[in-house]
């Protein structure tokens, strides 16, 4: 059974790129436009991994990660956050909130797949 990955980002183009790359590598993809949307969709879909942006309206990435870790069924799910080079402090904050790893933007499809492989196996 192919694994399902959720991509959370308010930018449609990033979602499209992530989703295209992952689908090309044989994963199922669920898209969410912000943290709030992600939480709703997590309740209805079984997700094996989350890739989330940090800056989003409604509920940002940090908030989303905290909520997800508080949910018993997603306590151990790998979460990858998308950061930019200048956000080192944000990275620490993200890790404290329960992020498994991070990808620095801009990134290439191959890098994305390497990270997915690293945390999902």
């Amino acid at each position: 059974m192919s694994k399902t990955i959720m991509t959370v980002d308010d930018s449609a183009s990033v979602r499209q790129m992530v989703s295209f790359t992952l689908k090309g590598a044989g994963y199922e993809v669920v898209e969410a436009v912000d943290g709030k949307d992600a939480l709703t969709k997590l309740n209805s879909a079984q997700v094996q991994m989350i890739i989330t942006d940090l800056n989003m309206p409604n509920l940002d990435g940090i908030g989303l990660m905290k909520e997800v870790r508080a949910n018993p069924s997603y306590k151990f799910v790998p979460i990858i956050m998308l950061t930019t080079e200048s956000q080192d402090a944000k990275k620490q904050e993200g890790k404290a909130a329960g992020a498994t790893g991070w990808i620095v933007k801009p990134f290439k499809p191959d890098q994305l797949l390497a990270v997915v492989k690293k945390v999902l196996g």
Binding site: R69, K75, P78, K95, A99, T100, K117, K118, V119, G121
Partner: peptide
């Protein structure tokens, strides 16, 4: 280690 979603197995495989 598991608390932030890390699985050591993929790392060893890598």
């Amino acid at each position: 280690l598991f608390a932030n979603g890390t699985n050591p197995m993929p790392l060893l495989n890598e």
